[in-house]
Design a protein around this nucleic acid. Structure first.
Length: 517
RNA sequence: GCGCCAGUAGCUCAGCUGGAUAGAGCAACAGAUUUCUAAUCUGUAGGCCACAGGUUCGAGUCCUGUCUGGCGCACCA
């Protein structure tokens, strides 16, 4: 709908040149209409004209459009639109017609951009922690959003199955097996003892067993990856060496102390970085360069979600890719901040060294998949999160996830009661009588869903979906209190449209949409 | 010391490229059910958007500085 309005505004502006992007907003205050546009204010600055004058010229043209009941100027020069009731009603019918597709954006591009989204990618040295869970949920939701927005998305989990940490892991398991204490710098969690008790003999079996556990936990969270990519593959196929050679050919490397270095200082880094160590082994950095070269050969656009502990690393990887001529503007890194667990007021301290930690598996077991997903989707992944287990569990009845699910269950219950009458025919049933403010507000919300998907996908902000879900549920509950549905075909249609959008919202978050609660 | 991220109601958090009177949930208080699910609804109260400057018609949002917290600053990953 926003897009439609923007197009109309654009048409009315054809006398102007060099137009900025036209933004259509939903005003906070209902008195300002259903949608609004600030283009006159923006143009006023550019053209050094009175914004209200520009607006009044535009309004004259916009008034003629059949979409609007009313177009008005307000405040310093906002243009406010009120939709015709018939347009709103027709769009509600469109919701029912499109059903699962309502909220999927039509791509004008016959060859959609391919996106390779890499996330979680935890080291295969132990169980996932809560931060991983957060990034997993956010990554999965972003993948769903991008798909709905018309991108072709592949998801991937990078397994660092090479390097020091693996040697330490193996040594730790061996020590446990022999009843010796954990070696210096090794891993000491209870899971090490578990693995030691199992049949796991060689490093492959040990790794496989840990990765299996990770997969199991992620699966329980409803997160599955299209591809698990082993770092060892890059070494086996010589891609790491080739990447380093490429940098060498570009004159971006030098040798010192028996190691090969990347001249990252020339590109703004505060120090140069080692690519090949004195002992001939490659660093994590050079493997990661190779990995991203590999990914760029498979997709147009890369998105990585990294933990905040890796953020210092972004600049140097981008620098390396840029100097190699790759489109760095198509390489995004989303930094995921950590989660601090609380039980009531008490923060749960975690230490990898002592192995004293609450795993993601334990949290999912305790809180449940739906609530965990909702909580992790509901906040900006770029902000630190305090997550209170007691609150998420104990207050489950007032939990926002249940609030949204309950709206869906209520809808289904009404439709079940209406079964004997049957669903009214959308073509022949008039929605003219849906004039109550609660009905109108609900309809407007339903028709804005595709706009939410679009913006949420562009910004990679799943929290916009959970926000929308809460707002939609609230409007539905309010409507429900005021309007008797059964016996009113127009309202039955409105309820069915609500069911569709509530379900589509929950599906976007991979949260179940129960028919009964 | 340097860098990145954050600081919005008592608590947990939303707030789209700068827009109109800053929002929600929880907690608190007062009400609503002979009627389709009360896991609900209606209302009240709660704010110097960390602080100080600046940019402009207009700042929670942009710039500079300060304070507080998190995370980095390896020939670990």
């Amino acid at each position: 709908m926003k897009h439609k309005i923007a197009e109309i505004v654009k048409k009315s502006l054809k006398d102007y040149q060099d137009l900025p992007e036209i933004a259509i907003d939903i005003p906070r205050n209902k008195n300002f209409g259903d949608y609004s546009c600030n283009i006159a204010l923006i143009l006023a600055k550019k053209l050094e004209q009175n914004p209200r004058e520009i607006a009044s010229k535009l309004v004259e043209k916009l008034k003629e459009d059949s979409l609007f009941e009313k177009v008005a100027i307000a405040g310093p020069g906002f243009i406010n639109f009120t939709l015709k009731e018939a347009i709103i009603q027709d769009t509600v019918k469109e919701v029912i017609k499109q059903d699962h597709d309502w909220g999927k954006l039509a791509t004008r591009n016959p060859q959609p951009e391919t996106v390779l989204l890499e996330y979680v990618s935890a080291n295969p040295t132990g169980p996932l922690h809560v931060g991983h869970g957060r990034w997993a949920v956010v990554g999965d939701a972003i993948a769903r959003l991008l798909r709905a927005a018309g991108y072709e998305v592949k998801t991937e989990y990078y397994v660092n199955n090479v390097g020091n940490q693996i040697d330490k892991l193996i040594a730790s398991v061996k020590a446990a097996k022999d009843g010796k204490p954990t070696p210096e710098g090794g891993y000491g969690g209870a899971y090490i003892q578990e693995i030691a008790k199992q049949k796991a003999e060689n490093s492959e079996e040990i790794l496989a067993s840990i990765i299996e556990e990770q997969k199991k936990t992620l699966g329980q969270l409803g997160v599955a990856f299209d591809n698990w990519f082993d770092e060892s593959q890059l070494h086996d196929k010589n891609e790491v060496k080739l990447g380093v050679a490429k940098l060498h050919d570009l004159g971006m490397t030098f040798e010192e102390g028996g190691a090969i270095w990347f001249k990252s200082q020339e590109l703004g880094d505060d120090k140069n970085r080692v690519l090949i160590r004195e002992n001939g082994n490659s660093t994590y950095f050079s493997a990661d360069i190779a990995y991203h070269l590999n990914k760029f050969s498979r997709a147009d656009h890369l998105i990585d979600i990294w933990g905040t502990d890796h953020h210092g690393y972004v600049a140097r990887l981008k620098a390396a890719l840029k100097v190699m001529g790759l489109p760095v503007d198509k390489f995004e890194v989303i930094i995921g901040q950590l989660v601090t667990l609380y039980r009531g007021k008490e923060a749960i301290r975690m230490s990898k060294r002592t192995g004293e930690m609450v795993t993601l598996q334990e949290v999912v077991d305790e809180i449940g998949t739906d609530a965990t997903r909702f909580f992790f989707s509901a906040t900006d992944v770029n902000s630190h999160l305090d997550f209170d287990l007691e609150l998420a569990k104990k207050k489950s009845n007032d939990n926002p996830v249940f609030y949204v699910q309950y709206a869906h269950a209520r809808v289904c219950s009404i439709l079940e009661k209406n079964k004997t009458a049957g669903l009214p025919d959308c073509q022949t049933t008039s929605l003219k009588d849906l004039k109550n403010p609660a009905e109108r507000a609900l309809m407007l919300k339903l028709i804005s869903w595709p706009d939410i998907v679009q913006v949420a996908a562009r910004l990679r902000h799943p929290q916009m979906v959970t926000e929308y879900g809460k707002e939609l549920a609230a409007l539905f509950h309010s409507f429900y209190e005021q309007c008797q549905v059964l016996g009113n075909p127009a309202r039955v249609i409105l309820v069915d449209a609500s069911r569709i959008v509530l379900r589509n919202v929950l599906e976007m978050l991979a949260i179940s949409a129960p028919e009964k609660m």
